[in-house]
């Protein structure tokens, strides 16, 4: 089946088996291996991507449902600066600075989910951030450094938007 969609700000056309999982098409056909498979059942959020700006589990989406939509994966979260340098999203930068990652399997999903959540709810506080990230499990860090990073990213973003 022929599909057209936006992927990380580029138009894509793809001819694929429609019922395949978006996660597999991203990893195997498009070689975007940033999206991880944790559980394969919608529980862990490691496969999170943004569809039309909303975090979803790509292990539960048949690829045909992308047709006409806008997808962002972790490969498309950072922006390019004017000199071609990589500008990390505030959430990515905070995860780096705070050490909010260990094995890294959960990290792409957490970065995307948090980035989208903060776009929608820029004033989310620590308690609300915990709720918003409830669908992203981490087996390594114990969450504390992740949440610390997200609280910091939220205030950085609020500061940036005031400038």
């Amino acid at each position: 089946m022929k599909l057209r969609f936006r992927l990380n700000d580029e138009d894509k056309e793809l001819d694929v088996e429609p019922f395949r999982r978006l996660l597999d098409v991203l990893r195997e056909d498009l070689h975007l291996t940033g999206s991880k498979e944790g559980c394969g059942e919608g529980e862990c959020g490691a496969c999170t991507v943004l569809i039309d700006g909303a975090p979803v589990n790509s292990c539960l989406v048949p690829v045909a449902q992308l047709d006409g939509h806008d997808i962002r994966t972790i490969e498309g979260l950072a922006r390019q600066g004017t000199d071609g340098e990589v500008l990390l999203d505030e959430v990515q930068q905070a995860l780096v600075s705070f050490g909010g990652t260990q094995c890294g399997i959960c990290t792409p999903g957490i970065a995307l989910c948090a980035s989208a959540a903060l776009t929608r709810e820029p004033n989310a506080d620590r308690a609300r951030l915990r709720e918003l990230l409830a669908g992203n499990l981490c087996r390594c860090t114990g969450y504390q450094l992740i949440i610390d990073a997200l609280v910091d990213a939220a205030s950085t973003r609020r500061g940036n938007s005031k400038r």
């Binding site: 019922f19 539960l60 989406v61 048949p62």
Partner: peptide
């Protein structure tokens, strides 16, 4: 009949793909 797929896609990879889908999402 497929809506958001959060029920039917769980474990779908271990089953044969359906012969057809009516996608109403």
């Amino acid at each position: 009949v497929l809506a958001g797929g959060t029920d039917v896609m769980v474990g779908a990879i271990d089953r044969p793909a359906p012969i057809g889908v009516i996608d109403i999402f």
